[in-house]
Design a protein around this nucleic acid. Structure first.
Length: 362
RNA sequence: GGGUGGAUGGCAGAGUGGCCUAAUGCACCUGACUGUAAAUCAGGCGUCUUCGGACUUCGGCGGUUCAAAUCCGUCUCCACCCA
């Protein structure tokens, strides 16, 4: 899912997203609640109409902001802008300091107003590292919140027009907690199950382990969604483990920052190397490992592309690669033309969506 | 022709005796980015280096001084003003 946090995949129109092959996008409850407001979006006819996107939309609940706003405010101002109680979460708008209170029911209410097709339960991504004690408390609260979300949704919609509700497995890096979370949520019953906290708090090396604990416990006939990931090799690894859905800012953010993804070879699942930290540390053989990868990245701003008139990726059929050279893209980045970010985002999203297509269809 | 003020690293521009390889900004080079407070952030940017340091820079040349980008003389160039 390309990410449209504030109601737009940065730099791209809905039409461009379609052309790239996007089938579903992600919006954010928290951001759209603050600006322009879920009431306004409802009056506009819902988020889909508002942003001219005719496909499905999944909305994140605001749970991630408990993590990201809290941590960032803490590192910047010494105190977190976020307060969590059993009742819900209090946020401070980082732009103007204004306080907002979001109980799970409020998150549901906003997501209904947005007209989302898949709504996420309000959850907490515990910070990392995190004591077992806190991870347990946090996970149990997330589960209680999930129940409240489900109840609210059932009380305020009828089954005919009710959006799908996905729960989120938490539990930090503790096997028993992760498993307990998965079991409890499955027992309660949701339309899909997400795994949270892996992308952001917890060390990336833990991903495979956590997926190994959790996925066998989740129903196979329901979508399983790994939140926030990831790098291409992580996505491949996660699909191997059984994950069906992803969202990640990497293609768009890194694209805006001038890093482009290039496909090197077709996937041969059994041969894919998962780059662990240990492997990265073997600096001598790093290049060799990288060559075994099915992709590579380039920083298009690098001087060596100054007179490189080839397309970004000669095997890519995205709009950018069909029409522009590396030298031109580098030039756009260097002079700060907004078109740079747009062309790079188009290319990177196409890279990711093509990768997913290949994982689906072989 | 006369007068005044200037010349600082790729550019702009601080610094008017030692703490100056010389602030700051721009440009340039490299890297990071994982449910987007990110068109952001970090590092580098005289030369060489066994990474401890060594050497060389503030228009040119020559002085003063223990010590000069900073003071003095002179030359070159630039800007403005008067004729």
């Amino acid at each position: 899912m390309p990410i449209a946090t504030k109601g737009a995949v940065k730099n791209l129109t809905a039409g461009e997203l379609k052309e790239i092959g996007a089938e579903i996008i992600l919006g954010n409850t928290y951001h759209l609640w603050l600006r322009p407001g879920d009431g306004l979006i409802k009056r506009a006819g819902g988020l889909r109409k508002f942003m001219n996107w005719d496909g499905p939309i999944l909305t994140d609940s605001g749970g991630f902001q408990i993590f990201s706003l809290g941590a960032k405010a803490k590192s910047k101002y010494g105190k977190s802008g976020v307060k969590i109680t059993e009742e819900g979460v209090e946020f401070s708008d980082p732009l103007n300091g204004e306080k907002y209170f979001m109980p799970p029911e409020k998150s549901m209410d906003i997501q209904l107003n947005l007209g989302s097709d898949i709504v996420m339960v309000l959850d907490e991504c515990p910070p990392y590292p995190c004591s077992r004690d806190y991870a347990k408390k946090s996970m149990e609260r997330t589960t209680r919140w999930a129940v409240r979300c489900k109840k609210y949704l059932e009380a305020h919609t009828d089954s005919k027009n009710r959006p799908l509700l996905f729960a989120i497995v938490q539990g930090s890096v503790y096997e028993d907690l992760r498993k307990e979370s998965a079991k409890q949520l499955t027992k309660i019953g949701f339309d899909g199950y997400a795994i949270g906290g892996v992308a952001v708090g917890e060390p990336r090396e833990k991903m495979s382990e956590i997926l190994g604990w959790v996925l066998p416990l989740l129903p196979e006939d329901k979508p399983r969604y790994l939140m926030g990931l990831g790098k291409p090799e992580e996505v491949v690894k996660a699909v191997e483990a059984g994950i069906d859905m992803f969202d990640c800012v990497i293609p768009t953010r890194e694209g805006r920052h001038g890093r482009l993804f290039l496909r090197k070879s077709k996937l041969q699942i059994q041969n894919i190397k998962f780059q662990t930290k240990a492997e990265t540390q073997i600096s001598k053989s790093k290049i060799k490992i990288k060559e075994e990868f099915f992709y590579e990245t380039i920083n298009i701003g690098n001087e060596k592309y100054k007179e490189d008139f080839l397309p970004i990726d000669k095997n890519c059929d995205c709009y950018t690669c069909r029409n522009y050279s590396r030298a031109y893209l580098r030039h756009l980045f260097n002079v700060g033309e907004p078109l740079a970010a747009r062309l790079a985002s188009i290319h990177n999203l196409k890279f990711y969506l093509d990768l997913m297509k290949e994982l689906r269809c072989g």
